[in-house]
Amino acid sequence: MTPRRIEFEILRYDPDKMQKPEFQTYLVPCEEDWVVLDALNYIKDELDRTLSYRWSCHMAVCGSCSMMINGEPTLSCKSFVRDLPNQVCIEPLNNFPIERDLVVVLDDFLGKLNSVKPYLIPREKKSLEEGVYLQSPAQLKKFKQFTLCINCTLCYAACPQYAHDENFVGPAALALAHRYNLDSRDVGRTARQDVVASNLGIWECSFVGACSEVCPHGVDPAGAIQQAKIASTGDYFMDLILPGRKS
């Protein structure tokens, strides 16, 4: 089959030479089975070596190739060119500062991930000799869905709440906190609540639901946040009825 020629309009930014980002157009002969990432690699190899973008796995598991494709936050390695029109607009992820071309600054997101203590906080630490923390399939199922996050930050790019207040902890970090809170081996919920149940945590979310629509792995962060809201509301009423209770 002859390759289809697709015009890629790519937002470029070189901090050394440019005051602000500008679009540059490339005409790429695309094979039927290509994804957008293949087209970017073609541009880099054949047309313009200066183009910068992140990628690693080329199979939708590393989460590094996120960008805006025709206005939609998308993994470029999961976006087939056969599903796209003859003109494609590529921009760096929305809601993040642009480092260079399609590379964005992720420091803020990484800080937020860290802030929710995204690791197991067991009741009693076991030594290696004592073996693993056991869990039944039913207990695992309670949170399995929320373990599937690949930190691609597409959900942050889709979230208007994060766009308007960068202090919002945001979908993926809150979903990950929920994942550990639901884990039968974990007792860290109280320690996470300061961040999770704050005004900048779950209560900043107004349930637009865009995060869950763009998530490439069906994590459903919006669902996680609403579940956490219900649980926190339960805490509030329990504290009213039983002041000083141990949570």
């Binding site: 602000k20 206005g71 929305n94 500062p97 642009i98 208007p160 308007h164 865009a210 629509e213």
Partner: peptide, 21 residues
């Protein structure tokens, strides 16, 4: 050098940017 570029989002009208909004 590092000189990250910050884009701004309009306070009003952002809901026209996508049908889901």
């Amino acid at each position: 050098s590092r000189r990250p570029y910050f884009r701004t989002v309009s306070r009003y009208g952002w809901w026209f940017a996508h049908p889901r909004y």
